[in-house]
Design a protein around this nucleic acid. Sequence first.
DNA 1: GACAATCTTCTACGGATGTAGTATATTTTT
DNA 2: AAAAATATACTACATCCGTAGAAGATTGTC
Lengths: 130, 130
Amino acid sequence: MKLSEAEWQIMNALWKKNPATAREIIDSLDEDVRWAYTTVKTMLTRLAVKKAVAETKRGNTSFYTPLVDQQMTRRNALQNVVDRMLDGAVAPLMSFLIEDRKLSDRERKELIRMLRNADRKGESDDRDHK
Amino acid sequence: MKLSEAEWQIMNALWKKNPATAREIIDSLDEDVRWAYTTVKTMLTRLAVKKAVAETKRGNTSFYTPLVDQQMTRRNALQNVVDRMLDGAVAPLMSFLIEDRKLSDRERKELIRMLRNADRKGESDDRDHK
DNA sequence: GACAATCTTCTACGGATGTAGTATATTTTT
DNA sequence: AAAAATATACTACATCCGTAGAAGATTGTC
């Protein structure tokens, strides 16, 4: 499941609220995204063709629902980003998170908590950590 | 500076070793990437056109060098990924790092260290970019 | 019921991308 | 120097992507 940038926008909107009509999707997009109605429709049709969304008609109007899982889709996309763009290394991702895109205090704490947690449930190879 | 997926491959090779000829680049790519010589040349020419690399001739052969900074280019690309694909949220990135893409023990420790460090120097914490 | 608003389907089109063939110039090897 | 290998410049082309207009179907409104 490969999505184009514009398609991500649509999917993100749909993941937030669904089912939704083309009109609802447009309205939910950022102000600065000024797509014509038919542009969004084209996107939706293409997404339907690739089975990323389901199209259901009620009367004259189509309602759309995501068919792919957000978590999973993002995960795959990120894996691809790491593989292609970062040449397989996660380090740049980490420094992006930590240095560039300053995490809020909140996020930083949360991240540390997650890491500790991951550490604990990490299988056999744990050595001296007391 | 927007790079296509194939262009990232080339740039990653060039960042690793430069200047390099088209031939050297091909040879440095993963085994499973079987591009024709002219394909790589096309890529390089396009990259030269958009000023991402410099082309210098020595005799009959061209040598290429990156003109854009790896760190910076990746950073921008990642910001774009967060904005478009992740709808502005970094949380999915974190969980990708921590849950999906299991960090090695080594990487996890390093990440924690970085976080602690960022914590220390982040007294005058102001956020909200753009 | 007529007109306006809205939705639908179909078609289009320029630029980006992946992928490479051809013909030609140059360099290297017998 | 003739042949073989290699590099270059140019051209091509199918598909994807962003973006939307046109024309017709349906629904809402006075």
